[in-house]
């Protein structure tokens, strides 16, 4: 593995840099947007304990997003460019994490967490030997924090599914979220995806990770009396049209982006010097 190690951020070739970027943007955006939705649960979860758990998880996901965005800042991007001034259409998260939920739909929160954190565990595992050390030196810390999230989600799913009404709600959330969750294993761009593997950034193709993910999530849900929308012969449901990643986002994303950039825009915090300023806009 050391033979193919990539150099530090300043010495990458253009192609290497773009490839690392494609990978990291996906990781960062997923965590960032997921956290935004989680924060809606603070002071609204079923109990004070679950309020705290969800707050904790949101805090972790924001922390992970910051860890990934840090790597992009090493390439010269500013936080403003990465979060506040980026065209919402250019965000590469799976639409799965941007979907809103009905007030009180706690089944959505815990199922979303379970599906995401299981995917995250596999995805991080496949990055443990990545050829870019700036990625690998973060994996251990993030994985450690994620394991608590999975435990929390699984415990809640078990408790909810012990109750007939609870199980119905988990089933409804599964029908709605499962097809969208598959997009977590969609590439942002097929050429970049090929390069991600060729440069030794990710040890396994996304399709294999998706298969492993199904082999974990489908039987687990089944054990709770919840059916994932997968046919007998293992055929997966079709990806929704607006699934994020390489495709368009749902209409919920621009609305969310508008909200989360509101103060930034109102305070006109746009004077941060940017290194990639467009010469056309120079005075």
């Amino acid at each position: 593995m050391t033979a193919n190690q990539l150099p530090g951020p300043d010495e990458l070739t253009e192609r290497e840099r773009k490839t690392v970027e494609a990978l990291v943007f996906g990781l960062a955006d997923d965590e960032f947007v997921l956290a935004e939705r989680y924060t809606e649960w603070q002071v609204r979860a079923p109990t004070l304990e679950s309020d705290l758990a969800l707050s904790n998880i949101a805090q972790d996901e924001l922390g992970h997003a910051r860890l990934w965005y840090d790597l992009l800042e090493e390439f010269g991007y500013t936080e403003s460019e990465l979060l506040f001034e980026r065209d919402p259409a250019e965000f590469t998260h799976a639409a799965f994490v941007e979907l809103p939920f009905e007030e009180g739909d706690w089944a959505d929160a815990v199922l979303r967490g379970y599906l995401y954190d299981t995917a995250e565990q596999l995805r991080l595992g496949a990055l443990e030997d990545a050829s870019y050390p700036r990625i690998t030196d973060r994996i251990g810390k993030i994985t450690e924090e994620e394991s608590y999230h999975r435990e929390h989600a699984q415990n809640w799913l078990e408790r909810l599914c012990d109750d007939p009404e609870g199980r119905e709600n988990v089933q409804a959330a599964t029908d709605r979220l499962f097809p969208h969750a598959l997009a977590l294993f969609e590439p942002v761009d097929p050429d970049r995806e090929a390069a991600i593997q060729e440069l030794g950034l990710r040890s396994e193709p996304l399709a294999d990770l998706r298969e492993q993910w199904c082999a974990i999530t489908v039987p687990f849900l089944d054990s709770l009396g919840v059916r994932a929308p997968v046919s007998e012969d293992g055929t997966l449901p079709e990806l929704p049209d607006d699934h994020g990643r390489s495709s368009a986002h749902t209409g919920h994303w621009p609305a969310l982006h508008e909200e989360l950039t509101r103060t930034y825009r109102e305070l006109d915090r746009t004077d941060t010097p940017t290194i990639t300023s467009d010469p056309d806009h120079a005075q």
Binding site: D60, E61, L62, G63, H64, R66, E145
Partner: peptide, 9 residues
């Protein structure tokens, strides 16, 4: 240096 957790404010 390091931090105890990634989300440290």
């Amino acid at each position: 240096m390091t931090l105890t957790y990634t989300g440290c404010p």
